[in-house]
Simulated assay, not measured.
Amino acid sequence: MERTMLNITHRDRKINMWVREKIKVTNVIEQGRRGKWTWVGHVSRIRDNRWTLRIITWKPYERKIHRRRPARRWRDELDDYWKGTIWQRIAQDRQLWKQHAEIFAQ
C-alpha cells in the first residue's frame, strides 16, 4: 500500500525504510507498544479498586496445566523488560516511567 501511494514498485529497488521516510508513516508495532506502556503506567497509578487495576494484578486461582506451550500474556513483555523488579512501583514515578517508554517501544 505504501509503495502504491508513491507510485513505485519493487522493481524500482527502493527499500522499505526509504518508502516510510517519504510517506512519514510511523511503525504500527512501535505505536502499539508505546500505547500499551502509557496505559499500564496510567492504570498502575490508580488508587481505588477499579477493575482495570485488578486485571493487571490478578492471577488465576487454579488452572489446568496444558501440555502445550503457555500463551504469552501482555504483561509478560513488561516482566521481561524489568527483569524481576516490581514495575508497578516504578510506574508511580511518572518521569522515570516516561524515560523508559521510548526504550521499551524500540
Rank of each mutant, 00 (worst) to 15 (best):
E102Y: 03
D76I: 00
R54P: 02
K64C: 09
R45Q: 10
I65Q: 14
H10F: 15
H42G: 09
T38E: 13
R33I: 02
V43M: 10
V40P: 06
A71N: 12
T85S: 15
R73T: 02
T9P: 04
R13T: 03
I65A: 11
T4C: 03
K59L: 11
K59D: 11
I8H: 05
I90H: 11
W58I: 01
R94F: 08
N49F: 10
F104M: 03
K64E: 11
R50W: 04
M17L: 13
Q31I: 02
Q106F: 14
I103L: 15
T38L: 14
I86R: 15
F104G: 01
S44A: 15
E77V: 01
Q31F: 10
E30F: 12
P60Q: 08
R50K: 07
G32W: 07
R54D: 06
I8F: 08
H100W: 08
Q31W: 14
T57N: 15
I103G: 10
K24C: 04
V43H: 03
T85R: 14
I65V: 12
K24A: 07
H100S: 07
R54C: 06
R63V: 09
T26Y: 12
R20C: 03
R69F: 10
R67F: 10
D80M: 00
I90S: 12
Q92T: 02
W58R: 05
Y81L: 07
K24V: 03
H42R: 11
W18F: 06
H42Q: 12
K98V: 07
W82S: 00
K24P: 01
V25S: 03
K22F: 05
L96N: 04
E30L: 12
K83P: 00
V25H: 00
T4V: 12
I15K: 15
L6W: 14
I90L: 15
V25G: 01
E2S: 04
P70Y: 06
V43I: 13
